[in-house]
């Protein structure tokens, strides 16, 4: 549905988007993730046909944006970051104007506006001037605008920016509902949003695509799967036993878990065990437990280490954009050497 090849956008000496390439397939809900100023909005504006690219090629719904801009723009619904609307117009007037602008046939316009208002949940404010609406409703009107021509592709730039938690939940639910029969590309710098709504994410930093894949895959890019084990017994014995288990890449001591309500005679010891990237985590868990038990170490708890997406995001997007460091792992215990830029994860 979207094909981007070597896209760059330069403003004077500033390279806002630097040679990014990606694809979004039909039916996907893809999150475009990145910190403020990473180039998300610029990329989306190019995809929506508002800005021209300095270099590169963009195809939207099969149409090349440079060669067939009208057809490409007619195939997508775009919601800009701040949902800019005309405050003097009523909601229904505005959506009728937008439907006409988007070439919705005259006979279908009324039904299209009604459907878009229903989908976005703004039917009851149809006669209200937009200037009198709250931020949340303005966002919804922006969404209704994107939906009014019933496009197969939606590009939403930070659809939940500035909304309260209830509104955010509603918009996320709406996006998921819309995603059942549409392709959606949405940008955000809120990680939980991607986790809550998207099937896949693209991570952009300093104008470059630094990672691509499902949320789990992106997490795994930065840290290999690992286990956190709470044991009772000799630390050296436990480390030696765990390190010798098949599939274990490295083992180290870690902060002990919180004291349990029924304290054991000996203090608990924490172990962090990195699993070889190629090993099957479940099997390694079994082998580690077996090795520890056989070594006479008491296993009190074992949990897979979950890397917070915030941490992964921070590591992916922070720091110097040195080509070889842009997506390289933080420790030698992590994944194999990263390619220069895009860390594409096979889906």
């Amino acid at each position: 549905m979207i094909e981007v090849e070597h896209l760059s956008k330069q403003y004077g000496a500033h390279l806002a988007v630097d040679d990014i390439s990606f694809k979004v397939d039909r039916g996907e809900i893809v999150g475009f993730l990145g910190p403020n100023g990473a180039g998300k909005s610029t990329t989306l504006r190019i995809l929506a046909g508002f800005l021209g690219a300095t270099r590169g090629r963009v195809r939207v719904a099969g149409y090349d944006l440079a060669e067939e801009p009208m057809k490409a723009r007619a195939s997508l619904g775009y919601m800009p970051e701040t949902s800019p609307l005309y405050p003097e117009m009523r909601v229904s007037e505005y959506l009728t104007f937008r439907a006409e602008l988007k070439l919705v046939p005259r006979g279908e316009r009324r039904a299209a506006v009604a459907r878009a208002m229903r989908d976005a949940g703004v039917e009851h404010v149809a006669a209200t001037p937009i200037g009198q609406l709250s931020k949340g409703y303005r966002q919804r009107v922006g969404l209704a605008d994107a939906l009014v021509s019933d496009p197969p592709l939606l590009i939403l730039d930070e659809p939940t920016a500035g909304l309260d938690p209830n509104q955010i939940r509603e918009v996320r639910a709406l996006v998921q509902r819309l995603g059942q029969d549409r392709t959606i590309l949405l940008s955000t710098h809120i990680l939980s949003e991607v986790e809550a709504t998207c099937t896949r994410a693209l991570v952009i930093a300093r104008g470059r695509l630094v990672a691509e894949g499902t949320i789990e895959q992106i997490r795994a890019i930065r840290r290999p799967p690992a286990l956190h084990v709470a044991v009772r017994g000799d630390a050296d014995l436990a480390l030696t036993a765990a390190s010798a288990a098949p599939g274990v890449h490295a083992a180290r001591t870690a902060p002990a878990p919180d004291p349990s309500p029924d304290p054991s005679p000996e203090p608990l010891l924490g172990l962090e065990i990195d699993i070889d990237p190629g090993a099957e985590a479940g099997q390694v868990t079994e082998d580690v437990v077996r090795a520890l038990v056989e070594a006479g170490v008491g296993v009190r708890a074992i949990t897979p280490r979950t890397e917070s997406l915030e941490q992964v995001f921070s590591e992916l997007t922070a720091g110097d954009p040195a080509p070889s460091a842009a997506a390289s792992p933080p420790s030698t215990a992590a994944s194999p050497a990263a390619p220069r830029k895009n860390r594409k994860v096979k889906r």
């Binding site: 929506a48 046909g49 508002f50 800009p80 800019p84 937008r98 602008l101 922006g142």
Partner: peptide, 14 residues
Amino acid sequence: RSGTIEALLTAPVG
């Protein structure tokens, strides 16, 4: 200034 031009020019208009 208000940003409405973005919505306007991303519609299929010349």
